[in-house]
Each structure stands twice: as C-alpha cells, then as structure tokens.
Simulated scan of single mutants.
Amino acid sequence: MTPADSPTVAGRPLRADARRNRARVLEVAQQVFAEEGLAVPIDEIARRAGVGVGTVYRHFPTKDALFQAIIVERLSGIGETARELAQGPDAGKGFFAFFEHMVRDASLNKALFDAMAASGSFNQELTAQARSVMMTGLGELLAKAQAAGEVRPELTAADVKTFMVGCLVMARQGTAAPELIVGVVCDGMRPVSPGRTPEA
C-alpha cells in the first residue's frame, strides 16, 4: 500500500466519507493546478470539489501539503499503471504507450516533471517512496517488454526515466515537436534488427 493510498488523521484511518472527501479534493486540485497553476486559492478548490473549506484544511493544512499529496498520489498511480500493463497481453506495446503517455502528461504538468526529476521542493521522504513505487512498476514493465524482444536488453528502468526527463526538457525548449522527439527516442529503445546498424 502506498503512502497516498492510506490517509490517516492522528494515526487513525479515515472514515469512508472522509476518504471520499479527501479523494475528491485531490482530484479537483490536481486538475486545477495542472490547468491554472498554483495561484488558485484553497477556497476555490473547495468550491469546485463541493466541500467546505474547513474540510480541505482538515486533510491538507497548507496548499503545499495538498500539492505534495497530489504528486505522491500521481507517482504511485503511475507505478501501478505500469505494473498493470506488464501483466497485459502485449508488454512491448504497453511499454511504448506508457512512455509516450508519461512524456505527454508530464509536459502539461510542471509539478509531475519536477517530481520525476527530483527537482521540486517536496517532502523528500514521501516523494522518494512514491518514486520508488513508480520505478518498481516501470522496471516490471520494461523487463516484460525486453523478454518479449521489443526493447533493447541492456536498458534499465533508470535509463528509461532519464529518457523521459530528457524528452520533457527538449520539448520545453521547443527545439522540435514533442511527437518527433518521443518517436526518435522510442525508435532508439527498440532492438536493432538483424542486418541493420543503428546508424542505418
């Protein structure tokens, strides 16, 4: 169970209604922060979530605490998605779809990019735990795709994450279309076909 999956208050598990309220606040805040930035006040997030502002503050004493909870939940959810894809019928297809989705999603969300790159001002212990969940899921998906002969066998999960962050940096610089950047990197992660050199 990941840190974001087991919220507590004073060490006690939350009631079902409180868990629903917390999940709703996280869902709305994630969308608002991604689309409008961090300047949106807590009162507005509470209004859009359909809860009282006191409810938000009971779960998240500050906006930073709310923001951090979103990042932890997102990273943990990403890891679980990767694990599910690893159990699917086509791990190779799932791997490349996952990579493309991650770059596209994080390119629209600076917070996720910072968390992946470990460059944000987050609680390092909680964020490190969530990144570990993400990397474990990515590792399982990568291993399945490699076993299927769809990805170069020498690549590691750390390599793949580095490629993701690199794609995001290049996309932010605007030197090439994000789709082109991702396509070139994905082609480079595929095994070299017999009789074909990497330069061909």
Rank of each mutant, 00 (worst) to 15 (best):
Q87E: 15
M116T: 02
E84Q: 14
S121A: 14
G79W: 01
H101R: 12
A91L: 07
E125C: 03
A118T: 14
A106E: 01
Q87V: 12
F96W: 02
I71C: 12
S119C: 09
R83C: 13
A106F: 01
G77E: 09
Q87M: 14
L85C: 08
A82W: 00
L85N: 04
A117N: 11
H101K: 12
P89E: 10
D114E: 15
G94A: 11
V72W: 01
F95H: 02
K93G: 12
N123H: 12
A118M: 14
S119W: 03
F98M: 11
A86N: 01
K93P: 01
F113V: 08
L75R: 00
F99H: 03
K110T: 12
F95I: 07
F99I: 05
A86G: 05
G92Y: 04
F96I: 04
A115F: 02
T81C: 06
E84G: 12
F96T: 03
A91C: 10
E125D: 11
Q124R: 14
E125H: 09
Q124E: 13
T81E: 09
R104Q: 05
H101N: 13
T81A: 09
H101Y: 09
S76H: 03
S119V: 09
A91T: 09
I78Q: 03
D114C: 13
F95R: 01
A106H: 02
D114I: 06
F95V: 05
L85Q: 07
Q124D: 13
M102D: 02
D105E: 14
K110C: 06
V72T: 11
S76T: 07
F122L: 08
G77S: 15
G92I: 07
N123L: 06
Q87H: 14
N123T: 09
S76P: 04
S119T: 13
E100T: 12
M116S: 03
Q87N: 15
G79E: 00
A118S: 15
E73L: 10
K110L: 11
E100A: 15
H101I: 04
R104T: 10
L75T: 03
N123P: 12
G92E: 03
G77A: 14
S121V: 11
E73Q: 15
F99W: 00
H101D: 11
G92A: 11
G94F: 04
M102W: 00
G79N: 00
G92L: 08
A111H: 04
A111R: 02
G79H: 00
A86M: 02
S121E: 13
A115L: 04
G94M: 06
F113P: 01
